[in-house]
């Protein structure tokens, strides 16, 4: 069932309480608010070292209104596995075990743990919110950083292609894999709910803006995410093991055709991290984007 804005208004309870520590315009907090809110009473969260381990709160309390376990950077999917198994033993397997972490853990340090849980078909959902950078530590390059991005560890521009985490998990026989965007929250929540209805290892990668590390205007947080889809940087799709077919999602469907896409520079020009990007780098970024689409097309 397609999720509408009206559905987003009906929540079991507020999963993210007001007055949290997320930066102004944070796409991750926004995505959290809607996704976890849609399942609040049944959610058990596992949070690896990430911005989410900070913006949840400190000292006197937490903004996360669901049971939350903070774990070491690379440990989250294994901890979630243990929780899922224990809940099964206790006959509480109606609860949804969700890993909520960034690209640092999901694309880099925790990827072996994640593939391990996927390989074992643990009944968990991993949501990788990606700002393509180590945001919490001050904006260093991650395996999901785009070519041309000026980060704290690639001051002259990142040269390496993105690690295509969703495809790695498809190759490892995940139950369900999808991408989403903070600009299309209904689509994200629909995928999130669908994933939770399935048994096995599920994975959603959501593009969220990071105004401080992208050196972007916080007001344009959603616009940048939207342009990510419209320029083809961020394909929106879902893949189901049962069909082994990747389907482009409604909000991003027409951008499967390169002719419908906006120029990538529309997206890069709104972000200070791409200031000074050369034509050569832009071409390389376009090529890397196309590489992603070509991969995706093999499953379409």
């Amino acid at each position: 069932m397609p999720v509408t804005q009206k559905d987003l208004m009906i929540k079991p309870k507020d999963a993210l309480l007001k007055g949290h520590f997320a930066c102004a315009g944070c796409g991750s907090a926004l995505a959290f608010r809607h996704a976890i809110g849609s399942v609040a009473d049944k959610a058990v969260l596992v949070v690896p070292a990430s911005c989410a381990s900070v913006y949840q709160g400190s000292g006197k309390g937490v903004a996360f209104n669901v049971p939350t376990i903070n774990t070491a950077f690379a440990a989250s999917d294994a901890v979630a596995s243990g929780i899922s198994r224990a809940l099964k033993r206790k006959g509480k397997d109606d609860l949804k075990v969700i890993v909520w972490g960034g690209d640092g853990s999901a694309a880099d340090i925790g990827i072996a743990t994640e593939i391990g849980a996927c390989d074992r078909q643990e009944n968990i959902l991993h949501v990788m919110y990606s700002n393509n950078v180590y945001g919490n530590t001050g904006g260093q390059r991650s395996g999901d950083t785009m070519i041309g991005a000026r980060t704290a560890t690639t001051p002259k521009g990142n040269t390496t292609p993105r690690k295509m985490v969703p495809f790695i998990l498809i190759a490892n026989n995940a139950r369900y894999v999808a991408t989403a965007s903070a600009a299309f929250l209904e689509d994200f929540v629909e995928k999130f709910q669908k994933a939770l209805s399935l048994e096995g290892f599920k994975f959603i990668q959501i593009d969220i803006s990071c105004p401080p590390n992208w050196r972007a205007d916080s007001a344009q947080s959603i616009e940048i995410s939207r342009l990510g889809v419209q320029t083809g940087i961020w394909p929106l799709f879902e893949w189901d093991r049962e069909t082994n077919i990747a389907v482009l999602s409604r909000p991003g469907k027409k951008y499967g055709d390169k002719a419908n896409r906006k120029p990538i520079s529309d997206w890069t020009s709104l972000q200070g991290r791409f200031r000074g990007i050369t034509d050569k780098e832009l071409i390389a970024l376009e090529e890397d984007t196309e590489r992603q689409w070509n991969f995706l097309r093999k499953f379409m």
Binding site: G19, F21, Q56, G57, K60, G61, A63
Partner: peptide, 15 residues
């Protein structure tokens, strides 16, 4: 262990 509460970061309107 910390429990859920509103305003863990204070009145963030001050930011």
């Amino acid at each position: 262990i910390l429990y859920p509460m509103e305003g863990v970061a204070g009145k963030t309107g001050e930011w």
